[in-house]
């Protein structure tokens, strides 16, 4: 279960008094990776595990250096290959085992969706089930779009691989057809490739209504991308979900699962924000036959990526 604890101003975060034995965060080319770590009181954290994707590391090196400078001897950098899910799992698993923390703060803001799901799966293992885990998320405020038109804005392009997420491969029956649920976000190119790869018998495309988005600008762009994708795919069902309210998204996905699980093998691909990805994780734990899939990319638009919102959301992971 993932329960929201609080949503507060980032600038108020230093007033919080909780102590964490370990913080896990990800250095990225996005300034968002610094938002929480710069606003938490240093004496409230014992160890900081800074994960850095090594393909390639240069893009995030500046921010990685800043994090190291900020946390000094408390900081350890862990290099991850984002296209080797098992090695990511093993590397983080070993670090948690080594540090043996009682409490963890996991800043999900700039990890890939796949890595978030993988790390959550580590916390579910018996060995770590007693760790008190808090997830935190700093949403994107806006994207540096360089005066592009809505349909020209892109965050990533090209698909390197479509794969099931480690630990979420589900269980399929040969008697059932395939149903694909996509939580559509900015990256409609990736969504399109994912959809063509699966050639599912039934497709559900999810969109975020403006009231469920963190920003009206982002919502407008998302809606325009969504409309374009629906037109491209043609024969599909649509549904709405939330970028803010995990439980609402869980309910929407569950509705589709309950209605179809007797006739279809179900695959979900979270392609919207990190909170909706947490909702997908919750659903996958409740319905282990469901598979979660990820379309990995090699190219991020480092110019169009986000600046942080002035909010932070905290969740308890049980």
């Amino acid at each position: 279960m993932i329960n929201k604890v609080i949503e507060q101003k980032l600038s108020d975060f230093p007033n919080r008094t909780e102590h964490y034995d370990m913080m896990i965060c990800c250095s990225s080319f996005e300034q968002r990776c610094l938002a929480l770590t710069s606003n938490i009181r240093q004496d409230n954290v014992d160890e900081v595990l800074v994960c850095q994707y090594n393909n390639p590391a240069e893009l995030s090196q500046d921010n990685c250096d800043k994090l190291c400078a900020l946390w000094g001897s408390k900081c350890e950098v862990l290099s991850l290959d984002k296209d080797a899910p098992l090695s990511i799992y093993d590397a983080i698993y070993e670090k948690i085992k080594e540090n043996n923390p009682g409490t963890i703060l996991f800043d999900i803001s700039t990890f890939t969706r796949e890595t978030i799901l993988i790390i959550l799966m580590i916390f579910k293992q018996d060995r770590f089930k007693d760790i008190e885990t808090t997830l935190c998320y700093v949403p994107a405020d806006r994207y540096s779009m360089k005066s592009l038109k809505d349909h020209e804005i892109w965050l990533s392009k090209g698909v390197n691989d479509v794969r099931s997420v480690l630990g979420y491969s589900g269980s399929f029956s040969s008697l059932k057809k395939t149903l694909l649920i996509v939580l559509v976000g900015f990256e409609t190119d990736r969504a399109d490739i994912l959809i063509s790869t699966f050639e599912a018998d039934k497709i559900y495309l999810g969109y975020v209504p403006s009231e469920e988005s963190f920003s009206s600008d982002l919502s407008r762009i998302n809606q325009s991308n969504f409309d374009r994708l629906v037109k491209l795919i043609g024969d599909c069902e649509t549904f709405s979900f939330s970028c803010r309210d995990i439980n609402k998204t869980i309910r929407e996905i569950e509705k589709i699962i309950i209605e179809n699980k007797d006739d279809y093998n179900i695959i979900i691909s979270p392609m919207n924000n990190k909170l909706s990805t947490l909702a997908v994780a919750s659903v996958a734990y409740a319905y282990p036959d469901v598979q979660v899939c990820y379309a990995s990319t090699n190219q991020y638009n480092t110019e169009a990526y986000s600046s942080p919102d002035n909010r932070v959301l905290l969740f308890k992971y049980e």
Partner: peptide, 13 residues
């Protein structure tokens, strides 16, 4: 052959 039915990341172990 479906892309992710029997070709899963877990097999890497």
């Amino acid at each position: 052959v479906k892309k992710t039915d029997i070709n899963n990341a877990e097999l890497e172990r």
